[in-house]
Design a protein around this nucleic acid. Sequence first.
DNA 1: TTATATACAAACACACATGTATGTAAATAG
DNA 2: CTATTTACATACATGTGTGTTTGTATATAA
Lengths: 211, 211
Amino acid sequence: MVRKTKQEAEQTRQCIINAAREVFVDKGVSKTSLEEIARHAGVTRGAVYWHFENKSDLLHAMRDQVVLPLIDRMDDELLLNLDKEQNPDNDPLTRIENFLLCTIQVLSDHQETRQTYEIMMTKCEYVGEFEKVMQQIMSNCSSIVDKLEQAYAKAMKKQLIKPTLTAAQYAQDTHLFFSGLLHMWVKDTDGNRYRNQAETLIHTHIEMRRQ
Amino acid sequence: MVRKTKQEAEQTRQCIINAAREVFVDKGVSKTSLEEIARHAGVTRGAVYWHFENKSDLLHAMRDQVVLPLIDRMDDELLLNLDKEQNPDNDPLTRIENFLLCTIQVLSDHQETRQTYEIMMTKCEYVGEFEKVMQQIMSNCSSIVDKLEQAYAKAMKKQLIKPTLTAAQYAQDTHLFFSGLLHMWVKDTDGNRYRNQAETLIHTHIEMRRQ
DNA sequence: TTATATACAAACACACATGTATGTAAATAG
DNA sequence: CTATTTACATACATGTGTGTTTGTATATAA
């Protein structure tokens, strides 16, 4: 009834995204109606259709809110100041380990991120218009592998790892390990098999590389 | 009209599963109607409801057709005759490598298996009644890790790998690596990033372990 | 101060999927 | 050889979601 100011409108937009996330994680994307999302957000479908084109658009917005910040974080934690040799603590392998650790930590601490990952991995279908998200995922993976490779190249120079393999090979193996861990971590809602041991698994993975 | 014999009935049942797989992989599970599956199989919804309770039941049947054989294969390829020391070719690490290789090979050669994996990983939602499948997946993973651990224990005895880590740790790391690879392999429909290099990635992963 | 665009709510129109119930011809059991 | 079950096809009943359109009060621009 009462028209909202721009700030308030942005607030309801965010509110709709939050509502959608909670209903999605509970019922899955396709079995969730926009009506249900609107009700959970305390608005009507009119508001939803005002802020988003359709359910797919809403899902995209939700995904962007967690994926884009992650990509920003990557450079800082993996590569920033990696060149400054003067700092002896600047061990590339430890940097990699910390990056993986931090990513898991975000999932642990930040419910929104955790729920969004759960939706993206087990509660939505990559089909039709949403299929191109898969291309984005693959592209992001390449970017991650690239940065891991840079870090491993440094480790190679410092003779921290075996020279018989290439930095690219180490990077790909680590990336696949971490992809697997993320999938398992998200699926392990009980926490018994992976969530509680994630730190150990990561540490072991890195330790396995040190010669 | 013409009533079918038991054999023919089983044939239409399989035909429905095949039709469902092809429609699922194209449109996703939730956006596929039983009507569409029936039409694609050359029958009506009556036949579908005769053979399956509902769409979820059909999806379960489809999954079982590829997951159950995989579990059977595992023991043979990973553990069978692993004890017979007389055969010098019986290298536990090579056995592991071959098991991983064979699994990828099945996905490459067998379209039905490949499509089913694609559906299970990116074209269905693990929600409601289908959520318990996730528990089965986790359970299967534990079983795989166990068998990998047995193989790595042999490798440890033969001093093929570093003794500073445990067989369980190697097994978990390999399992996470392979989970990640499977996910990437399936998602990489272009084949450029992972499908073409899967063999190399596996070989490198194992080679990384040899001391 | 007025005109217009905004931020929704409410109402409308349409399609479509699901589950069940009924019909039926032939296979099979006895 | 008859009775019954099987393996479906057809028809029915119903709910539910979606996209769009219209209405409207107010923030905001001019």
